[in-house]
């Protein structure tokens, strides 16, 4: 195992600091939302985790394609890292959304496009890990994993478009909104907390992925050692 790079140590410290600041901004600094009250503060982490969650799944699909082209196992480790970290963050996103929805929509869950797509996406990536678990040969595992992340990455947006045909009540935070949807309006301080949340989770995301990649190379090393010893 190579020694921990200095940059990674710095990134670790930075992650903890930005997480602290983001929490402070979200819980104390940002004003209380008038209609929904305190629970609206959940939204800063909800968006932050959702952002890195989606980013990770896109990265994973790209890394999958890169693996299929180059057959370099580093891409595979990168892909696994991205999927795993994103799955964790996306899980937080879904639960936070659910906690927010309870007082706001008076229900834990609705079959809205975003919620449903999020749930299906999460299931796709859980299936991804089940697929990987079922294959012993590391090279084949990497190949199948890459193919599956590619399929998942493409089907998720189409799922979203299809479900949107059914109905939606989710507020649109960024981008154009339908006229009949409730729109969240943010004041200046809210925007600071919002954008800092995005930044903070990006830093944490990079840090965790880096750690997971290192873990992946350690896994590979142990696997090879096992093979050598058993021979």
């Amino acid at each position: 195992m190579q020694n921990k790079p200095v940059l990674l140590t710095i990134l670790d410290a930075a992650s903890i600091i930005v997480l602290g600041i983001a929490t402070y901004l979200a819980l104390v600094f940002a004003p209380t939302e008038a209609v929904m009250g305190q629970v609206q503060r959940v939204f800063y982490f909800h968006i932050g985790t959702a952002w890195v969650g989606l980013l990770g799944f896109v990265i994973a699909a790209v890394a999958g394609v890169a693996y299929l082209i180059t057959k370099d196992s580093r891409w595979d480790r990168f892909e696994v890292a991205a999927v795993e970290v994103s799955t964790v963050f996306f899980f937080i996103t879904i639960v936070l959304g659910s906690i927010w929805a309870r007082p706001a929509w008076n229900t834990w869950w609705t079959w809205d496009p975003r919620l449903t797509t999020a749930a299906i996406t999460e299931l796709i990536y859980i299936a991804y890990f089940m697929l990987r678990k079922g294959i012993e040969d590391p090279e084949k595992r990497a190949r199948f994993g890459a193919v599956y992340t590619l399929l998942g990455g493409i089907s998720a947006p189409i799922t979203f478009m299809v479900i949107r045909l059914f109905r939606t009540i989710h507020p649109i935070v960024i981008g154009s909104a339908n006229a009949n949807q409730e729109k969240m309006s943010m004041t200046g301080d809210m925007k600071i907390a919002f954008f800092f949340g995005l930044f903070a989770f990006t830093v944490i995301f990079i840090d965790l992925i880096w750690h997971r990649i290192r873990l992946g190379s350690l896994e590979e090393k142990v696997e090879q050692l096992k093979l050598k010893v058993s021979m």
Binding site: I120, T121, A127, G134, I135, K140, T159, V162
Partner: peptide
């Protein structure tokens, strides 16, 4: 080609074929 075979297919297929 996986160890779990039959069990795995619906788990892999349904979320991707959802659209």
């Amino acid at each position: 080609q996986t160890r779990t075979r039959e069990v795995l297919l619906p788990i892999l297929l349904f979320p991707v074929a959802m659209p």
